[in-house]
């Protein structure tokens, strides 16, 4: 990235080098991460261009570990674009260009030393529409650990799958049909399966792109409950259209409008005492 200094680059290289074998299992992460509200991911001056059109303007945002950061804003405001920068999914879009600096635990994720494929394992993602693979439930969860060589043996793999399903709160419901098609589950179950699939590769960050917009209120409630539990171990960034959801699940909220990060801060502050009038108008329902 343009604004990167030599020392930062060196640090990033060193970090990514010792991070390459992702061996820490999900459970014993507490020791590895820093204090609760230290930023896990940090974005500085991030701009995104789709061809000639600029979609995001100089966004600066810290996303703390062990907390849920909600990105809110009207449609087309760039919140999903920003989310996709965090695991370099924008790389897969033709003509997309990202400038600025994004770090995970201080290491630049756009540095040439960072492999975007491994980054996506560390920064997991859950999509708007539940998208399990058309395979069995077991295979859905086992796929990630298998391609990343996380499981050393078959029993290891089974343990990871069961563990992940348990963490995603799905194990009780599917334990008798692990070898049936994942696509046969209900929408909410499919979404939790996708979360289990993301957890299975021991990520540090989980990105959620409107994870509940295709779900009914009961399934939504379950996912929100799950997010609250997952927050104990992960840095979660969620894009949502529902302000109630943002208020319920997040600790920090960032409001985007027309590609600009208008305001960010503690969720309680944003919702009760926003500084910017646009934020005020949006959360009170005057537009959007």
């Amino acid at each position: 990235m343009q604004i990167q200094t030599q020392s930062q680059l060196a640090e990033a290289t060193a970090k990514s080098a010792d991070m390459t074998p992702v061996q820490t299992t999900v459970g014993d992460k507490s020791g590895a991460s820093s204090t609760d509200h230290a930023a896990m991911m940090r974005a500085r001056q991030v701009s995104v261009f789709y061809g000639a059109k600029q979609a995001l303007f100089d966004v600066n945002l810290d996303m703390p570990a062990r907390a849920v950061t909600a990105l809110i804003g009207p449609s087309g405001c760039g919140k999903s674009t920003f989310l996709r920068c965090l695991n370099r999914m924008n790389d897969t879009i033709e003509g997309a260009r990202v400038t600025g600096n994004i770090t995970i635990e201080g290491a630049d994720i756009y540095s040439p030393a960072v492999d975007p494929v491994q980054l996506r394992a560390r920064v997991g993602m859950v999509f708007q529409k539940p998208n399990p693979f058309p395979k069995t439930i077991f295979e859905n969860v086992a796929y990630g650990p298998r391609i990343h060589g996380i499981a050393r043996s078959k029993t290891d793999l089974e343990e990871i799958v069961v563990n992940s399903l348990q963490k995603a709160g799905l194990f009780k419901e599917v334990k008798d049909r692990l070898h049936e098609a994942g696509t046969g589950l209900s929408g909410g179950q499919q979404q939790r399966l996708c979360i289990a699939r993301a957890i299975a590769v021991s990520p540090e960050v989980i990105l959620m792109d409107e994870p509940c917009s295709a779900l009914d209120p009961i399934a939504t409630a379950k996912i929100e409950e799950l997010m609250d539990e997952l927050r104990q171990n992960y840095c979660i960034v969620i894009v949502t259209h529902s302000m109630q959801q943002a208020a319920r699940v997040s600790q920090r909220t960032a409001f985007f409008h027309l590609g600009i990060l208008v305001e960010e801060g503690e969720t309680s502050v944003i919702f009760t005492n926003p500084k910017d009038s646009r934020t005020q108008d949006y959360i009170t329902g005057r537009f959007g």
Binding site: M89, T92, R122, Y143, G144, V201
Partner: peptide, 19 residues
């Protein structure tokens, strides 16, 4: 969505295609 799902958990391009 299938490609995104696979990319999202860190499958490489060839793994997305082949798997």
């Amino acid at each position: 969505s299938i490609r995104q799902a696979a990319l999202g958990i860190g499958a490489s391009k060839h793994q997305v295609v082949m798997h």
